[in-house]
């Protein structure tokens, strides 16, 4: 499945996430959600499902919805089940001749709502095989409640629940590999992507996910200027560094076949990604060199494994 990507045409499509929402200035989530929804064909309708999150409280604050499509938010931990219910209703009503046209079902949830509290609901929905896309916008912590660690928070990152003190030095644990967990569900399409460059990767992965029948999953890196502690204007650069250091590799797994969707021209050292972000500042203090070494070793190991899997 592929589509000829043309940025100029794409940006001329009517927006599906409007301005006037209340995400922070420079929030990655707004960019990710607009980017994914842009992949919908113009004539197709969608129902957007949302877990409780920054995105939810900002994009549907009564009476202001920022969605051009139907939208439902129910709770934090159940967005995949909520989407299952909408999809089930669609099947039932379609069968009974009570609904017309094509409707697509797209869920957005943060890493807290996906990696952690919503994982059971997500796993269930994927296993049952609903025709839906689940998009995790991964900003690597519970940002809605004010930057608490999640299982998506990378090691050593400072959050309000993994503070840097005289003994504690940020998060002690690894980042859960959620994308792999989703691959293990043997669903038709899984991809890890991010908004970079001309958005071709995000757009193509989103298009594939939306127009592949069955349950599909996108994990999208979505920087949070506040939580990651960098100047909001540098978002594009931060994402590019995540990708070029291989901290956040871009790949897709279609019907079990792994494919690398982006190979950095030159693999940059992890410090290039860490240095601009306040959440990693303590890693650069004297005596903490081991943290950077560990971070680099971990990224290298995962990258090598991905290269093996993708046959690249």
């Amino acid at each position: 499945m592929s589509t000829v990507y043309n940025l100029k045409q794409e940006v001329e499509k009517p927006e599906r996430l409007t301005g006037g929402h209340r995400l922070c200035a420079g929030c990655g989530a707004g960019i990710v959600v607009s980017g994914v929804l842009r992949a919908l064909d113009k004539e197709d309708r969608a129902v957007v499902v949302n877990a409780t999150s920054c995105l939810e409280v900002s994009t549907f604050m009564y009476p202001y919805t920022a969605y051009m499509d139907s939208y439902i938010h129910s709770a934090f931990e159940n967005s995949a089940a909520t989407c299952s219910g909408v999809e089930a209703a669609y099947n039932a009503l379609k069968r009974r001749g009570k609904v017309e046209g094509t409707v697509k079902f797209i869920t957005f949830a943060g890493d807290g709502g996906t990696y952690d509290i919503g994982l059971q609901s997500l796993s269930g929905a994927m296993e049952r095989g609903h025709d839906m896309v689940y998009v995790c916008y991964d900003n690597e912590a519970y940002m809605n409640t004010g930057i608490q660690r999640s299982s998506a928070t990378p090691p050593f990152a400072r959050t309000t629940t993994t503070p840097v003190g005289s003994v504690g030095q940020g998060k002690k644990q690894n980042k859960k590999d959620l994308t792999e967990i989703l691959v293990a569900h043997h669903i038709p399409y899984v991809a890890q992507t991010a908004p970079i460059g001309n958005f071709k990767d995000l757009h193509t992965r989103a298009y594939n996910a939306i127009y592949t029948e069955g349950p599909c999953f996108l994990n999208v890196l979505s920087p949070c200027p506040r939580g990651w502690d960098y100047p909001a204007a540098r978002l594009a650069e931060i994402i590019k560094l995540a990708v070029d250091t291989c901290v956040w590799p871009l790949f897709e797994v279609e019907e079990g076949v792994w494919r690398l969707s982006y190979t950095p021209k030159k693999k940059l050292p992890v410090v290039d990604f860490l240095r601009p972000q306040g959440r990693f500042r303590h890693m650069f203090q004297k005596g903490n060199e081991w943290m950077i070494e560990e971070a680099q070793a971990s990224v290298d190991q995962k990258w090598e494994r991905l290269l093996e899997r993708t046959g690249a």
Binding site: I72, T82, G85, V86, A89
Partner: peptide, 12 residues
């Protein structure tokens, strides 16, 4: 319950 309430919202 999540499925049911969402389905109901969807018109089912």
């Amino acid at each position: 319950m999540s499925v049911c309430l969402a389905a109901q919202a969807a018109g089912a």
